[in-house]
Design a protein around this nucleic acid. Structure first.
Lengths: 229, 229
DNA sequence: TAACATTTTTGAAAAAATTTGAAAAAAATT
DNA sequence: AATTTTTTTCAAATTTTTTCAAAAATGTTA
């Protein structure tokens, strides 16, 4: 269940937002001033913050900035004035979205859902099931030793599977061919590094739709390879 | 440099959007019908898609859905009708944002920037214990070998990356070209010191907004270079 | 300001690294 | 033992990066 924090001093508005969000299945908590809101947000239990700009205590700009210093959760800013929106842009506070009042509650719900979906898409990748490694269109079932590309199973040989899995489990990390060789082949096995290259090529044939522009395994010239998040 | 794909059949509008985005430093490509747009988007070279709903060939709903099946890049949908927005929500297509025409170009630029920033923020937190060197607007991720300038990723070649990283890790220290050469190139490699200069130039092109007044890598006349804190 | 020294820019050549296809070797299966 | 599959090796083709050298620009000094 996703939890949403509403920081909004006008109780009537906050209540309305709360009702709609709860109807859509979210758990909602409200705070009515800046300081408390900030403290709550930093608590870390929320998945998204709806933040009004006009607040007693600490204003929305400040709250946004302070949340962003510590947290990466989506922040949806709400303001009565169109000018404030420009200010939000200008300050580069790291707000993810903004709406001007008045807005329809369904608009709010829609935006909240969109952000949630996006956040989950990007973040949920490598936490839950340890046996499943999933990044974008690639799903690797480690126990079953199966690989699915866009939902379709592809056959991988042992070395190909091990290599792909290692890269996918350490995404965004550049490994040299030597490192990969030591990792997948026996530490002290004597062999040619070139075999790594060939295996990369074979893997690419199976997972990349266009080998010239690899979407998963990138080449870092002069260094090695990297699985792109 | 971030690349944006605009899929919009009205050429005048597409041109306007392109102009504004390019002014903000984005690289922009336009496609004027659904099929071509989809193909381009799946190519994988873009960081964000601006997608009009009304398109000849394949409509925006379909294009959005199809992109989302394969790609995680931000999609910003544009429509003339408010009703369409509700439809986008309803269908759960995975669009990240939407704007109704008419909109101000600066609004478009702001939204694009916000999405880009967020995408980078999220992707970066996903990785584990990376070595990050950060000085003012420059962030160097040593394990991923990525460089961000004002939050935007730039491509660096091996030597460029090594040289920049070395300077950034030893800020405020002047190095002669000889020292830099010995540091980045093999100690005993025979080569021309001039190559250091060329690499500095290339790095500057990527990190300095005004090459005439370098904000990061300063030239110390008659001596060498220094990364300014 | 002229003369000089140093740095920067530029484009093309050279070098290095990667990709690719195919054949040889090794391992597993029948 | 023969066949099939997988892995490794090799070398040509391709791509990217680096180097080099000459020209242009910039800063320094007399």
């Amino acid at each position: 269940m996703s939890k949403i924090l509403i920081i909004e001093d006008e109780v009537a508005i906050a209540d309305l937002e709360k009702d709609y969000l709860e109807l859509s299945g979210f758990e909602v908590v409200m705070e009515h001033d800046g300081e408390k809101g900030l403290a709550r947000a930093l608590d870390g239990e929320f998945d998204l913050v709806v933040l009004d700009l006009m607040l007693p205590g600490m204003d929305g700009f400040e709250v946004c900035k302070r949340i962003r210093e510590k947290k990466d959760i989506p922040i949806l800013m709400v303001s009565a004035k169109k000018d404030d929106i420009d200010k939000i842009h200008g300050l580069g506070l790291g707000a993810d979205d903004y709406m001007t009042k008045p807005f329809s509650p369904s608009e709010l719900v829609a935006r909240v859902k969109a952000h949630m979906a996006r956040y989950n898409r990007l973040v949920n990748t490598n936490q839950k099931n340890n046996d499943i490694v999933e990044i974008r269109g690639i799903r690797i079932d480690k126990t079953a030793r199966r690989v699915y590309v866009e939902g379709e199973e592809k056959n991988f040989t042992t070395k190909e599977f091990d290599l792909l899995t290692f890269l996918a489990e350490n995404p965004n990390h550049v490994f040299t061919k030597e490192e990969l060789f030591r990792e997948i082949w026996d530490m002290d096995s004597v062999g040619d590094i070139a075999t790594v290259t060939v295996h990369i090529k074979k893997i690419r044939e199976k997972i990349e739709s266009n080998s010239n522009k690899p979407q998963y395994i990138e080449t870092i010239w002069g260094v090695g390879y990297r699985f792109k998040i």
